[in-house]
Design a protein around this nucleic acid. Structure first.
Lengths: 338, 338
DNA sequence: AATTTATGCTAAAAGCTTTTAGCAGAAAAA
DNA sequence: TTTTTCTGCTAAAAGCTTTTAGCATAAATT
């Protein structure tokens, strides 16, 4: 008597098969109202048998909660979005909440279209994410009737926002280098107009004090390569460690150092930022780097939007989640499996 | 009289404001039934004014079509999934269809959970995607009441499936090398138990004939590096071109060649596979490679599931979409901007 | 014995939309 | 004039669930 595939079973089918009314069936299944234990069991058994599953549309229509949220991203080739989206999805699926993924391509028309579709679908909330921390969303998200959470993206002043703690991450890198006895630490990072780059650089400067130098450039291997060549070509003392603003830069740095016959980590230790495994694992030697815990960011954002959608209070403002140091072999630490 | 944010406007509000019945309002808005042109315009204007947008839940409940689909993936760090998902989303948003993203992490329990949630939500179809072509889905997808499309993943024999055309892609690479006058072409690729690796290798062998050699190993830079060392250490003629099974391998190959002071492309030309920009653009010289057109795969899968969900016929079986040669500088072609 | 309380169930409404069937009135045909 | 056709609208049903209000019956209290 399993569902024979002709059409989905409804609670009406359950009620009929169990010989009770629809309301009793509903009460029995949800544990609401007053039901005899025996009836309750019977209804549940019957529901199980015929393969009844409540229609989420009907349920959402009534409760005005769709148990779905939208995730708006402007990143399409992103190593950032998918780990976060997976984190969101992972933490919400156990609460019966599904995630609409909307890739806006940074196109305002597309963003507007997606936003309207999400509202029409009565989503319980929206998570906005971007590839840059300081880029405004391509669409007006502030006066919405549903909660919005920003993750890896800047929202209005009083919004709920999650960022990786760039300052702490940078400190983690510098402290690690210092603990290993390095004293002349150089910082090579991305463009100065990226907030994240500025924060990391400032944290590095605060930690290293006099003689510290932050070189801003591009988020590319090429820039890392070029910066190293510049530094090693000019007169004066050479660094014994380089803290890079991204793993890609670190990769360029490592290549350039090898070209110069500088030993890693003996002569110069290198730390990256991102823990982008496919890069960090493949450098020679494998790269010690900072992980931004993207999945955890997704978890937190998911839980926040869940609370907000239930009307529970969530502290507004920016929450910065700690980064994690991933030790590989580019700093001369005791070799350890990763 | 714009929506003041207290609650969403319903068609009841439209009807009242326009002084007509609910059915007339619905007919006017959808162009169904018989309506006077003047009334129709008035209703539409009023709807616009008060910011009415139909509730997708109610609509879906009635029509039994939710205008949403699910995308099931077992890849979480994927450079593959997001471009495809973006392609799907992009092509469907204009048809009013939204996409649920479900990351299964290759965990059958999670996959089952997601699948049930999707069915409860009455999705119109499911797109399954994986990181490997020949991996079975972690959950039973065959006897579902809704259509399923497989993309970059293997489905049952009679299912609708989209793959990149690995054979054509490999041929593209080999032909390109031959046209440039290379004759001793070597193939370095991933593990033999990957279907894609076998297809590409076979295509390469067919095109190159006698003396061709396919070396199977890992999908890693390290393997590319190691393979080159092996080949150049042994006696006998050396290749004048290397076709790599992935951009990562190509990267390792290029590094190893540089270590051996072999000039690229003068002595050896290199072609990759993936057009994974962040790798292919950063090698020195930038890598000529094969693009699998992941976004286009997403487009096609999206259109296929759309047709299927409307009951329109879609040819079953495997459709292989052509790959594209991306010329950069690792083969000695005339330098061109990319 | 008469009244109150508790128990287990059900009918009906609500949530929002689309579709079906059908009702008046006007215009056209007989 | 009477009958038919057409036009423009509306009431009501359907889609599936949860919740509210309430109805019998049995048990407990006065």
């Amino acid at each position: 008597m399993k569902n024979t595939g002709d059409r989905r079973r409804t609670i009406y089918d359950v009620a009929k098969a169990a010989g009770v009314s629809i309301s009793t069936a509903s009460n029995a299944l949800n544990g609401t109202g007053r039901t005899n234990a025996e009836t309750r069991e019977r209804v549940r058994r019957v529901a199980e048998e015929i393969g009844f599953r409540p229609n989420a549309l009907a349920r959402g229509l009534l409760s005005k909660r769709s148990h779905a949220i939208g995730m708006l991203t402007n990143d399409t080739y992103g190593r950032l979005t998918l780990p976060m989206a997976a984190g969101v999805s992972e933490v919400l699926v156990d609460h019966g909440v599904s995630v609409f993924l909307c890739a806006t391509n940074n196109d305002p028309r597309l963003a507007q279209l997606h936003l309207e579709a999400l509202l029409d679908r009565q989503v319980d909330g929206i998570i906005f994410t971007a590839t840059r921390l300081d880029l405004a969303p391509p669409v007006q998200l502030s006066r919405l009737p549903i909660p919005v959470v920003y993750v890896f993206a800047e929202g209005p002043a009083d919004s709920v926002t999650f960022f990786p703690d760039d300052e702490q991450g940078a400190r983690l890198a510098v402290d690690h280098l210092k603990e290993l006895g390095r004293s002349r630490i150089l910082h090579i990072t991305g463009p100065r107009d990226y907030l994240a780059a500025r924060i990391r650089a400032q944290s590095y400067l605060d930690a290293c004090g006099d003689g510290a130098e932050a070189m801003f450039g591009e988020w590319s291997e090429e820039w890392g390569h070029e910066a190293v060549q510049t530094v090693f070509a000019r007169p004066g003392p050479k660094p014994d460690a380089i803290f890079c603003g991204s793993d890609e830069i670190a990769r360029g740095v490592i290549d350039a150092l090898r070209d110069l016959n500088v030993e890693i980590p003996t002569d110069v230790a290198v730390v990256g930022f991102d823990n982008w495994e496919v890069v960090a694992r493949q450098t020679r030697p494998p790269l010690t780097t900072i992980d931004m815990e993207l999945k955890e960011l997704g978890h937190r954002a998911g839980l926040a939007i869940l609370s907000l959608s239930k009307g529970e209070p969530v502290p507004a403002g920016i929450t910065r989640l700690p980064c994690r140091l991933v030790v590989r072999q580019s700093c001369g630490s005791p070799l350890q499996s990763d």
